[in-house]
Structure formats: C-alpha cells, structure tokens
Nucleic acid binder design. Structure first.
Lengths: 211, 211
DNA sequence: ACATTTATTAACTATATGGTTAATTATAAA
DNA sequence: TTTATAATTAACCATATAGTTAATAAATGT
C-alpha cells in the first residue's frame, strides 16, 4: 500500500486556485464545497480544516486575486503629478493585471451586479482604493487644465467596466460571431489593443489637446 | 370558512414580477422556488404548474424584462441615416428603458459576467440585436465621416456597460460614500444626467466636430 | 344540476448542501 | 523510540432544494 505524503502548503494552494477558477466560472452559489474538493482531489473536510466556512474561503480567494493590485496598480504614497502618463499607466496596468489574473474580472463583475452580497471588506476596500486612485489622477488632470468635465465614477465604469466586460464576454462574443460574422464583436482583439484603444478614447473624451 | 377566489392571470403575473425581483437581487442560484412561492403568497407547486422548471421560469422572466426593448430601443426596419441623433436616441432610450425596468441591468450583467450560463436564446438574441443596432449607427457615422476610429464592441461596453453598472452599483456607491465623502461616487446623479454625460463623452471620443 | 376542467393545496421525494466528528496516519519534536 | 502534533479520511448530520403526486375546490361547460 503506497504511503501518502502530506504537503499542507500545496493542499492549501490547490484549494485556493481551484476555488478561484470555479467561483469565477460558476459564481459563488453554484460552486459547491463537494465540487471544489473533487476538482482538487482532496477530501471535502480539508476545505473546512483550512477555512472556517465557504464564505471564508471566498474571502481568501478574493484576497489572493487582489493581493498584488496594491503594488502593481495602486502605488502607495506615490504623487500623481503627471495625469496623462498616470492615466495611461492606470489603464494599461489594470488591463495587464486582469490578463495575468484572468479570474478577477468575472469575480469583480459578479459582485458589482450583486450589490456586493458576499463582498468581503478586503475586496470592497481594494475597489474603493482603485477608484480613489483614478479619481485622484482625473482631478489632478482637471486642476492642471489638461482634462475637462470630469465625472470620476462614470469614467471609472467606462475604463474598468469595459476591460472587465471585454474579458468576461469572450465566449459570448465568439458564439455571436459564429452565428453571423457580419458583426464585429472584437474576437481577434488582444488586451493590449483594447487598453490602447480605451486610453486613446478616454483622452478624447477628457478633451486632451493633441501635442 | 372564506371561499378563495382564483385568478390564474394574476397568479402568473405575480410569479413573474416577484421572480424578476428576486433573480435580480439574489441571482439565479441563490433564489429558491420556496422563496419565490413564499414571497408571492402561493403554494410552491403553482410555480411548477405554470412553468416547467426553474430555468424555464428564469427564461420567462428575462423575456418579460426584454419584451419592449424591440419597440422602444430597437425599431425594426428603421433607417439609420442620422448617426448623431440616432446615437443620442440609442443612449437615452436605453437609459430610460433601464430606469423603467430596474431589474434588467443586474440580470444582464450577471449573464455577462457568467459567460451566459443560464442565458436563454431569447435574451442572447436581444443582446445581439441591441449591439447590432449600435454597430449600425456607428458604422453609418463612420461612413458619413462624422465618427472616427470606431470599434463598436468596445463603444458598446462603454455605453451599455456604464449604464448597467451605474444602476447595479448604487448601494455600493452609497456605502462607499458613507465611509468617506471626499470621494464622489455619483450618489446624487440621476439617470438623465448620466445619459447626457455619456452622450457628450461618446461624441468626443468619436471625434465629432462641434457644430 | 351535474360533469368537466383548471387552479390550488398539503404532503411527499430523492438528492444535494455546508458543515461536523472521530478515527487514522504522516510528520515533527522530545 | 516514543510522544505529540497536524493533516487527512470516511462517515455522518440537519437542513435545504427542485420537483412530484394525489386530493381538493373553484370555475366553466353542458
């Protein structure tokens, strides 16, 4: 009889990554503990050994998805004195972050469509900080007379919402394009192109003068 | 003993409206047949008397939410020869439609974040048609040299996504604004203002020349 | 008035769900 | 080597879930 080895770190990591994928794909309610356990190849009780309950696991998953967002997108104590460059950095860094953490957009959008039903504080905090960052950049741009008629919340939805939707709707867009390919649903667009496009369009709508 | 009266139309309508609210608020998976029955004040078996199953009821709810979208937003056989006016009409009519059918944005966004897991054909069709309409307007504007550098799918996300997110995030935005009111989360913006703002900004990003 | 149809009811069913428990076993510490 | 600790297991549990069934009763048809 083969002796089984134990690696608590590996087990815990497998739970997190597998849960992230399942929560992202199926949503919180449709993802069961049994399903996660089966997908991990572990006994279900392990989940409750490492996490207090399902919602606790969900919180851990979201924390993990957002763990680097502070360093990569929200740079602490940084001064935002160059709004145009900062705006470009914001858009492209967020887009890149989503590409590297492909389960985040669906998780985020679900909470945004759900009025935050299961939204842990850590995620609410990150979302608020993300918005605060963009808001600061936009306000600085307005102060410097580079940007005009700024409404940060709506600009935020246009940038972050669009990036998220671009990612989450990929299967639907491909399905649509199979039915009729007269309509261009951006199936061949890559994230870099989309980020560039958004930046270009946001500059226009902010009234940025051509240099 | 008071005799009970029956009104099948009223019962059916109550199931639809109550389900719409619950599916919108809680999502499909977290909304139970028992809960719907209780909220309607009917016996649960009535739901399965009128609808084959839960997913069938969901489909009926979505059909109901979208039933007027064809007449009000997507006008059949109409010519789109005035892209600027047509664009304005599209944005404002969609915004108004969402205001009159407040449960639609959450239902829509959930499906968009879900890769359409429970998406009935009727809704997929409506979504495709809605996008096709905007696409047509944008392409005509490009043809007439009124609009420039058009990417219909991304513009669609910026318009429709933003309107949907504005509605679904209202509680979260209010919650955020209570924590710190230094950040403006558009809590006092009404739908008309938002629609106007979006139209103004979309004109700019399409490169519309001032008249 | 009686027969038929339809809407409603209470109770039931098989299965699923989040979580628990006690035993077992691999690993680390003494 | 023995003891203690931590990770894992199989089985269990109370409750919930989507749906079913047969009986009942209101409404309609003859």
């Amino acid at each position: 009889m083969q002796k089984k080895t134990r690696d608590s770190q590996a087990t815990k990591a497998k739970i997190i990554h597998t849960s992230m994928m399942l929560f992202s794909t199926n949503g919180y309610d449709a993802t069961t503990a049994d399903e996660i356990a089966k997908a991990c190849g572990i006994n279900k009780a392990m989940i409750f050994y490492y996490y207090k309950n399902k919602v606790g696991l969900y919180g851990a998953v979201l924390s993990h998805a957002l763990e680097s967002i502070h360093e990569e997108v929200i740079s602490k104590d940084k001064e935002y004195l160059h709004p145009l460059e900062d705006l470009e950095t914001f858009i492209k860094t967020y887009a890149l972050y989503c590409e590297k953490h492909p389960y985040l957009p669906a998780l985020l959008l679900r909470e945004l469509s759900n009025s935050g039903a299961y939204l842990p504080d850590v995620m609410f905090d990150s979302m608020r900080k993300l918005f605060a960052l963009l808001s600061k950049i936009l306000k600085e741009g307005e102060r410097q007379k580079l940007f005009f008629n700024v409404e940060p919340m709506l600009i935020h939805f246009m940038i972050v919402g669009t990036i998220n939707l671009f990612i989450t709707t990929k299967p639907l867009r491909e399905k649509s394009s199979k039915i009729e390919n007269e309509i261009d649903t951006c199936c061949d667009c890559d994230m870099e192109y989309v980020a560039d496009y958004i930046f270009t369009k946001v500059k226009l709508m902010l009234g940025v003068k051509p240099t």
